[in-house]
Amino acid sequence: MNKPIFTVILIAFSLFSTLSVFAQETDRLPIKGFAIAAPSPDEVDRFVKFIDEELGTRGVNTLVLRVDYNYEFDSHPELRNETALSTSDVKKLVTVAKKHEIKLIPQINLLGHQSWAEDLENLLKVYPQFDETPHVKMPEKYEWPNEDGLYCKSYCPLHPEVHEVVFALMDEICEVFEADAFHAGMDEVFYIGDDKCPRCAGRDKAELFAGEVTKISNHLAANDRELWIWGDRLIDGKTTGLGMWEASMNNTHRAIDLIPKNVIIADWHYERPDQTAVLFAAKGLKVVTGTWRNPTVAIAQAEDMYRFRANSTPAMKENFYGIMQTVWTSASRFMDGFYANTLDQDGGTNTQWHTFRKMYEKVNEVEKR
């Protein structure tokens, strides 16, 4: 073979190989996540083993831990759960996460989810003056629906003292988890801008919601941290037909155009692979699709995320940020079901643990780890 031609072929082959590797790398999802309640202190070692043997080996690179008041806060010890994680407990989680290059994101529910069923969460229990709806009394036995429209309480985003408390919790939990991101929850906020609130009455609910997101985001950004929130309050529940749970029916959805573009959206849909990720990406927001307990839906959601990235402009592609398995039981219960391979009540595989397995089988098949 002619030497110059052979040299050109070698260069072309080398360039093609480099481009192929680059294409494979850029086609990987930036976020491959797992979201779960932080373990109780007596389950930390077992959960560390789960991270080491199950999350790390599957390529999970982001772990959202719902901590809430399950930590021995020094800034506000009055808000600790009776049994809570110590600093040494947290450092065990940090160590194993670093081993597998897993980004740890602690979560404390802000704005909404300040109660559950008949019980107030710690913030409103200790600081009742922060309650957006103090006239709504907690029932002895919770039922839904109810006359008060009570699902979960909210704190008043305009109370002059609330952020002094919640920002201290945020800063402390981010420090101990060595985290550069924080998840504020902010899903299913039904109480906002209540007509009887002396500060919020008559105000635009979208502006109130966006104002709270912006305030939290700006505080985190001052320490080079990013904000994650659930996306349901930013979707128009009526226009999309998604209703009051997966979307907003109280006019907070217009906040999608008012919040900072550096907020990461966790867009959860559990019964169908609804494609609202496109909405968030088109608004310039990075979006991670959240799955739950239906393996078929989760696989479709993962496939959609790869398809969106493959068929988008460079400007849009990176907004399709990834996929995340969400778990809505305790860490202990999830691990029990996972290791026992427990079936659902109908003898099928519609469980959180089967979904986790199947979705990550699909992700690793696509990315050929």
Rank of each mutant, 00 (worst) to 15 (best):
P139H: 03
C200N: 04
E101M: 11
E212S: 09
R233K: 15
L150D: 02
E361H: 11
T18K: 11
K196V: 09
L110W: 00
K125P: 06
P4C: 04
I229A: 02
K137E: 13
R66E: 14
K317V: 08
E132V: 04
D236Q: 02
V44I: 13
C200Y: 01
N262A: 05
V366L: 15
N250E: 09
N218P: 10
R307I: 10
E212Y: 08
S115G: 06
C174M: 06
G284H: 08
R233F: 08
S20N: 14
E226D: 13
I5H: 11
G59W: 03
Y321C: 12
E54L: 08
I5G: 05
T133F: 03
H269A: 07
I31Y: 12
G284I: 08
E365V: 11
N122I: 03
F182T: 01
S154K: 03
E161V: 05
L93Y: 02
L120N: 04
C200W: 00
E303N: 12
S217T: 09
N350D: 14
I192M: 05
L208W: 00
C152N: 15
D74L: 13
S86I: 10
S86E: 12
D180P: 12
I11K: 06
Y306I: 07
S217Y: 04
T57V: 10
V60T: 12
V288S: 04
Y155H: 05
H113P: 05
T18W: 12
W144F: 15
E147S: 14
F308A: 05
S330R: 04
S330L: 06
V48L: 04
T240S: 12
G348T: 10
W268K: 02
A277D: 15
L19F: 14
E172W: 00
A331H: 01
A281K: 01
T83K: 15
V64G: 02
R233A: 10
P41D: 08
V44C: 06
D195E: 15
T7V: 14
T133G: 03
A168D: 08
T214N: 09
A181M: 09
L63P: 06
Y69G: 02
F22T: 12
D346E: 14
D232P: 01
P106W: 00
D194A: 12
A184S: 06
L258K: 07
P139F: 03
D148G: 10
H163G: 07
V126R: 03
I31V: 15
K125F: 09
A168N: 05
F308I: 06
L227K: 00
F6D: 15
D131N: 07
Y306W: 13
R369A: 13
L343V: 14
C156T: 01
Y69W: 09
E318V: 10
R309M: 08
